[in-house]
Structures are given as structure tokens and as C-alpha cells.
Design a protein around this nucleic acid. Structure first.
Lengths: 328, 328
DNA sequence: CCATTCAAGGAATAGCTTTTCCTAGATGAG
DNA sequence: CTCATCTAGGAAAAGCTATTCCTTGAATGG
């Protein structure tokens, strides 16, 4: 039950293994008839070259490691899919590694991936704040996606600030003038950036913010609570730091009889389908295009593997998806 | 900038490469002093054996392929994490492959994984109904997780029927006697099994079901709608086929002033944290223990790689997580 | 003192593919 | 007819490790 090797193909075609290899790869000088004979033998025997042998010879494995600290949750998954997409078409396979936020696990994974001679590493996370750089062999290129390293290095991030901006522009465009912001903990860089972009766009349009940004948690509970506090200010639009907060806000508004979007327009963030679509009414939401983040990260990694020297942070523009909660 | 190989270690330690290999692997007859010298040289040079070369020689790669048709969504992810967990401790790495439900992509992935000489395959999906078996080399073991093959083969599934049963038992135990069921489309095997387990447990306890199971969609919208239809029957408990339906039901109940859990107890399914915890009140829910499904699948695969012959379907018991919506 | 055994480590092979270099035969030119 | 050139394909090396078999020197037994 041995695997069929190029040796078997060569024997079946009555040529040497070198010739068989050339025939299959279109190399060297061979008669067309010989090429055909080898190709047919390979076909008949179901030959597929052993990637391990190719990799050993080529000095690279056509694999990359994908490291996440996120247990592949909400954010890593789309990034991962985008990355896999970009790599898969280039015929590079992905090793999946979940560090569970344990530096020791991370170290072991990196050693393992190095021993497997991966061509590169993609590191993803659930927060965009700088994290300690991974300690990898310096000639293995690394790209960070949805997270960034402490020192220098290449990173691809969503544009949170831009996301805040387009949310504000949208609410202004539909005529709202008493616009509030409820979001997650201030210690999250993403929360601060979204708030900053939002406020800046309001300022640029000459619209006054309805109170300062309210920082709290990323939960529905906080959305319900903050919306209650905000009611006295009579906002006609609320921009929420994520979709869960927006759902909490919607709950409170409905409970006190404020109509969405007629009385208060609502915009969420993340465009997390089950949350945004299931809400009553379905939520407008800023989409960070995480798949695109992953795709771009993978493309940068491919470039780096190809020898290009890259660094710095690349931001992927966010996109507003308008649904009923802001008037669609 | 070449990678350090065992040749370098051997040279540094002043021995042959065979001896160096034996020293590092504890094989052969060597003086303790020699072993130490080699170990120190390896340490100093930062040597790690090239896994590709080892794999080529051993005829196996210590990798497995993880194939999903689910775009790594709600269900595959926990399965995948469990699997990675079980494999990682056995020092097997995982190739991630997302077929996007495209049979052609699946075929290409399988070819690729075969060429990479994976030791085995795990196939996961988002539905438990039988699917066409993957067309892999017959001496690569395959285990299905959260899905099962058409013909024979090893599969690990959640126990949907048992999940329905424990939901019913719980509602009966807290004294409910007018118990209804709202769930997803009847064409889903999981929906039918959950309903069957639920009804059977009611019957066994001599409790009459409050109307037949209502099949519909897996959405909040359907939950809201079905709850409205159900109100006339005055149920004192509703078991929902997933957490999204349960949230929809809760919305409607709240809207008409029925208290949860005092007037109507609610139990969902999936125990999807952001849904179940964010709900008002937080949902009791049946947890399929998908990580365990993945872990068991991986363990079965390891056994199969080790030469054991396994087949048949293994079901992982579900677990009820009680929260406020059913009285906790 | 010689023959045998043992300890320690070296040499070579296998695993599979690709590529470089080389050879044998054929063809063309002079 | 001889030499140069070309064509088609073979032989061998490289990539790295683990293992089997072999060699050398020392030690032991008779």
C-alpha cells in the first residue's frame, strides 16, 4: 500500500526519474511523445508529488502560520478567512494556532512553526492596541492583522476613526442634529478612535454633540443603561460603539415608546450579522471589512515572502451598511 | 543566513551527524560526555530539527487537515478549538481549509492535503445531516465532527435529542405544565431531533405539550412571530430551538407584559454567549458542548492514525445552563 | 599472549523531488 | 569522411534527518 512516487511513474513510462520530473514540470529538452507518455503514466497511477520532498529541496514549505490570541472569535475569524482566501489562491496552506493569550503557548507555537519552515506568519488579535512583538526568527516575515506590534513591523488595521466619521456623516446627512455616542471602555484604543472620528466629523459639520461620548462596556446591558441616562438630553440619533450596545439602546428606546428611526436614529458598529439583522428594527452598522483586513495582510505577507521590505501600518477603510434603524 | 542544521551541530561538537542525531534523540550507545557536548552545541546554535526532513523520512507529517463547509462560523469554531486542543498536546499541527460549500474546492483541498501527507482529516459542518463522504485516499483516516457521512465512517455529533430531553425535564422540574416548543425549519435534522427528545420527555412525565412543535426559521423574527401566535394558548414555558428564536420570543412576551420567568419560563438552545447573556433576562440554554465534540473527534482521529479501526456515530451529551429566564 | 566481546562512534542509506551537468547518438557542415 | 553541434535523456547531487550496519580500539577471558 505504498504511496506512488515519481520513481513508479518513471518506471511505468520507461524513463529515468529525472526525465519524469522534467516531463511533469515542463522543464528540459524532451520529445513531445515522451512527455505524453510520462503524463499518462502519472495520470494512470494517480501520482501527486510529495510536497514534503519539494519543500525540503526548495528550502521553503509553501505554508504560513496563523497565530491568534482571540480563540478565533468574532474578529479573528473574518480576518482568517480573508487571509486564507488570498493565500489559498497562491497555493499556500495555513497552519492554525490559537495561543489562548498564553505567552508560553505562543512561544511554543512559534518554535513549532519555525521547525516546520513556514514561509511567514500572520498574527491576529481581538484588540488593535500594540502588543509585544512575536519572537520569531528574523528571516521569517511577520504581518500583524487587527493588532500591531510594540516596536516596528508591518500591520494591517481597520480604520476605526474613519468608521466613526462615516457614522457621523450619515446621521448628519439624514438631518439629525442632536447626536449622541455610547461606546465601550475608554481603555480600548478602538473605542477612543471611533469616538474621535465621530466627534471630529460632527465638528467639521458644525453640529454640536449631544453630550460627551459615554464610555462603558461592550454589552447590551450598558447600552440599555446608558440610553436611559441619555433620554433627558432628547437625542435624535445615537451612534453606538458596537452592535450589542445598539441593541441595548434599542430595547430602552422601545420600552419608553421612542420610535426607531423616526424619533431616534441608531447606528451600530461591527455589522455582526446575527446581532444587526436580528435587532428590532435591523441595525445600520459600520462594517470594518475584516475579511479585507485579512486579505490585505496576506497580500503584504506574500510580498514580504517575495523579498519586498515592508513596514508601517496599513488601514482598511470601513463601510457603512444602512438598514432600517437609521432610515434606510 | 542559512538555517542551522544538524550538520552544523555535529561540526561544532566534533562528531559525525549520525552521532549528533543519536545524542539529541537519546538513541544508540554514546558516552554521557558526548551527549552533553552535542546538546550544548545544539543549544548554543539554536538548532531545531527540520520537521520536513523528519516527515519525509518517517513517511508521516504529524499534521492533520481540518475541513469545514461552514466558513468557520458559529459551529465549526468551537469544534475546531476542541480539536486543536486535543491535537496540539500530541504535537500535531492543523491545516485549516474552508471549502465554502464548494465541492470543487473541497476536492482541491483534499488533493493538496494528500500531497502534504497529512496523517488524517477532520471534516466539520454546520448541519448534522449526512453529507457525501469526502473522496480521500483510503489509507488516510477521516473523522466527521458535527456532520456525518452518507455511507459508513466515524462521526462525532452533539446529542440534539438529549438536549431536547433535558430542556423538558428542567421545565417540568420547575413546575411548568403548559409547555410549548418553537424551533427552526423542519428540514433540519437537528430541529426534528430536538423536538422529538422534548416531546418524548414530556410524554414520559405525563405532561401534555402545549400545541405541536412550531417549525419555522432560526431567526429572532420567527421567534417574535411564533410567540405572538402562541399567546392564546397561555403557555407557562417555551423551549426554543436556538437562542435567537428565544430572544425573539422574549421580545414579544415583554411587549405584551408577560414576565420572564414568572409568567413564562424560557429555555434556548446553543448557549451562544453573546446572545444568551445579552438577552433580557439572560437565557437558560442547552449547550451542545461543541468543544468537546471537537476534542472527541480529534481523539478518535488520533486512535485511527495509531492503527485502530473505528466507525459509527459517537454522541456527546448536551448540558443545560440555567440562567434567569427559567428561574435559576 | 591471542581471541573474543563490548563500547563508542563513523559511514552509508533511505525518504522523494528537482536541477545541473554530462553522455550518446544523430545531424549537418566542410 | 571527420569534426562540430544539437537533441534527448540519463546520472548524480542537494536538501536534512534518523537508523542500520560497520569499524576501531579497548577490555576481558582463556
Amino acid at each position: 500500500m505504498r504511496r506512488v512516487t515519481i520513481k513508479d511513474v518513471a518506471a511505468a513510462a520507461g524513463v529515468s526519474i529525472g526525465t519524469a520530473s522534467k516531463a511533469l514540470n515542463g522543464q528540459g529538452k524532451l520529445r513531445a511523445e515522451t512527455r505524453d507518455r510520462v503524463a499518462q503514466a502519472a495520470e494512470r497511477l494517480g501520482f501527486a508529488p510529495n510536497t514534503l520532498a519539494q519543500a525540503l529541496l526548495a528550502g521553503r514549505s509553501y505554508t504560513v502560520g496563523l497565530i491568534t490570541t482571540d480563540s478565533f472569535g468574532r474578529f479573528s475569524i473574518p480576518v482568517m478567512l480573508g487571509a486564507e482566501d488570498a493565500l489559498g489562491t497562491g497555493l499556500i496552506s495555513v497552519f492554525m494556532c490559537d495561543t489562548r493569550d498564553d505567552p508560553d503557548r505562543e512561544r511554543r507555537y512559534i518554535e513549532m512553526l519555525t521547525a516546520r519552515r513556514v514561509d511567514g506568519l500572520i498574527v491576529t488579535g481581538r484588540r488593535i492596541e500594540p502588543r509585544p512583538a512575536v519572537q520569531a526568527d528574523p528571516n521569517i516575515p511577520v504581518v500583524y492583522a487587527m493588532t500591531q506590534p510594540d516596536g516596528e513591523g508591518a500591520a494591517v488595521l481597520p480604520d476605526d476613526q474613519g468608521g466613526g466619521r462615516i457614522a457621523a456623516e450619515h446621521l448628519i446627512a439624514i438631518g439629525r442634529r442632536r447626536v449622541a455616542h455610547i461606546t465601550g471602555p475608554e481603555r480600548f484604543l478602538a473605542a477612543r478612535l471611533r469616538a474621535r472620528g465621530f466627534q471630529a466629523a460632527l465638528g467639521a459639520a458644525g453640529v454640536e454633540s449631544c453630550g460627551a461620548a459615554r464610555f462603558g462596556e461592550w454589552s447590551e446591558r450598558w447600552g440599555r443603561e446608558a440610553a436611559g441616562q441619555l433620554l433627558a438630553d432628547r437625542p435624535d440619533a445615537i451612534f453606538c460603539g458596537n452592535d450589542q450596545i445598539a441593541r441595548g439602546v434599542a430595547d430602552t428606546l422601545r420600552a419608553v415608546g421612542r420610535r426607531i428611526p423616526e424619533d431616534v436614529a441608531l447606528v451600530g458598529f461591527d455589522n455582526w450579522a446575527p446581532m444587526a439583522l436580528g435587532a428590532l428594527p435591523p441595525l445600520s452598522s459600520v462594517d470594518m471589512r475584516l475579511e479585507e483586513v485579512g486579505r490585505v495582510a496576506a497580500e503584504h505577507l506574500l510580498a514580504a515572502i517575495g523579498g519586498e521590505r515592508l513596514r508601517g501600518v496599513h488601514k482598511v477603510p470601513s463601510q457603512l451598511v444602512v438598514r432600517e434603524s437609521s432610515g434606510g
